[in-house]
Design a protein around this nucleic acid. Structure first.
Lengths: 255, 255
DNA sequence: GGTCCACACTTGTCATGACAAGAACGATGA
DNA sequence: TCATCGTTCTTGTCATGACAAGTGTGGACC
């Protein structure tokens, strides 16, 4: 069962944390339910308190569970907060929530960069880039429209990859593509004709737009993307306490 | 020396972390410098590895130090970003950009909470709350519409305050109101009649909405706000590197 | 019936010890 | 000179044990 969450080579505390995340995401542990106590978890996994506490600390940092000294931990949220990865990978985010992600790659093309793209990717206008147009689905319903542009050396890898099969970013990562820093810009736009058709909303309906520019550690841009979400299905949320670091999430709205 | 960092009653791992933060902030440990190893810190503090590691884990989560398995920790940053203040105070944000902020408080009222508000503030429906409707301007142009609701004990303070004079949050802070944690939810909505009139956009135009629920350290909600921005004037941006925590900013779009 | 308190349970903190995994560095050989 | 290898150091992981601090509950008492 736990094999889908990762191989057995994971450290014990990560396996415990992954199992708890799964149980929370699946609804087996609902919001407000008490999380098994440290001693119970220790008995279940035949582990000492150290890895159990490490797992719980991890979930606590993600905001999934609450509790404190003397207060048994309770489930606070069922979303997983993995800011960067989650933001990149639509599929794993949806899957983590227990929904069925889908995607249809409508176009993949190599063409010269226009002014906007060239500016975002710090290229000269006319430099060849690879553009991808993908419709993203959740439980079969159109949720997001993704217009992604890669610089040519990276984009060329996509022609050898079935974009509708696995995770694109996992594939690029395996190929040695480094995308460690990203800048996201979020605003609202009215749906144009193409948006309207592919997202099944009215022309001019408000859409939540996320524009993203991802770069390698050296600061050279690798990808630029214009993602448009149906605001009735997805929103973004940020949680920040004074001490803790804010976490950016993508929220799913069951409707 | 360490007394300014807190009383002696702090747990050991917090004292170690606080001391390291001080040494890093003061420049005694500059960016790039190696942090004392776990064994060195253990000897310095006459402590076992557990509290030392807990302290280092804490600093690592804050992005102040790097390192990893086998790699001795090094100082990465000497400050921690605090995007919270920026997000709360519209005025200081605009002023920091060199623009002229303005505001017109259109309504301040004490009324019973409706279902949505009651849910957000964890009150019973009908509990009295204080609501504020404010139009925010930049360089004289309508930019944002703010519908804020405070729980009554906090909201009552506003009747003794000229909302159009100074910073509201600074005033509340002086009055001892604690708002250390906040949850922001961002999506897009179509402008309704009131939005349309006060933001000077067409009916149905896309607006960028930020809903915010701020709480005290004890987790009790203090304020709930529904802020709607003209997307042609403001957007949000988030910057994240792989390890470091993302920072949320509000962006101004000169037009 | 309401109040107060002792007790059980939970989590937080810390010491000690052990082994594994990865990195840095110097010595060695080509 | 440069590549390679092994030693050593550092951090990651985990077991065991102990006490402190806070919470919740049930029973005794008024």
């Amino acid at each position: 069962m736990t094999c889908i969450l990762g191989g057995m080579e994971m450290p014990l505390h990560e396996r415990i944390a992954a199992d708890l995340r799964r149980r929370i995401a699946s609804g087996e542990l609902a919001v407000g339910d008490p999380v098994p106590s440290e001693s119970q978890l220790g008995a279940q996994w035949n582990a000492s308190r150290a890895p159990v506490r490490q797992a719980l600390t991890s979930l606590r940092a993600e905001g999934m569970i609450g509790g404190g000294r003397g207060k048994p931990a309770v489930v606070r949220r069922h979303t997983l907060s993995q800011p960067f990865e989650t933001f990149l990978s639509f599929s794993s985010w949806a899957a983590g929530l227990g929904h069925v992600p889908g995607q249809r790659t409508l176009e993949i093309a190599r063409r010269p960069a226009d002014a906007d793209i060239a500016d975002a990717l710090q290229l000269d206008e006319g430099t060849p880039v690879v553009q991808l147009l993908r419709q993203r689905l959740i439980d079969g319903r159109p949720t997001m429209l993704e217009r992604t542009t890669f610089v040519e050396p990276v984009g060329r890898l996509l022609f050898d990859f079935d974009c509708d099969s696995g995770s694109l970013y996992a594939y690029l990562g395996e190929q040695g593509v480094d995308m460690t820093v990203a800048r996201h810009q979020i605003d609202a736009v009215a749906a144009d004709a193409q948006d309207s058709e592919l997202l099944e909303v009215e022309l001019g309906a408000p859409l939540l737009r996320e524009r993203r520019c991802a770069s390698g550690m050296d600061g050279r841009p690798v990808e630029y993307s214009d993602d448009r979400y149906r605001p009735d299905m997805v929103s973004f949320s940020i949680e920040n306490s004074q001490q803790a670091h804010p976490a950016l999430l993508r929220d799913w709205r069951a409707s």
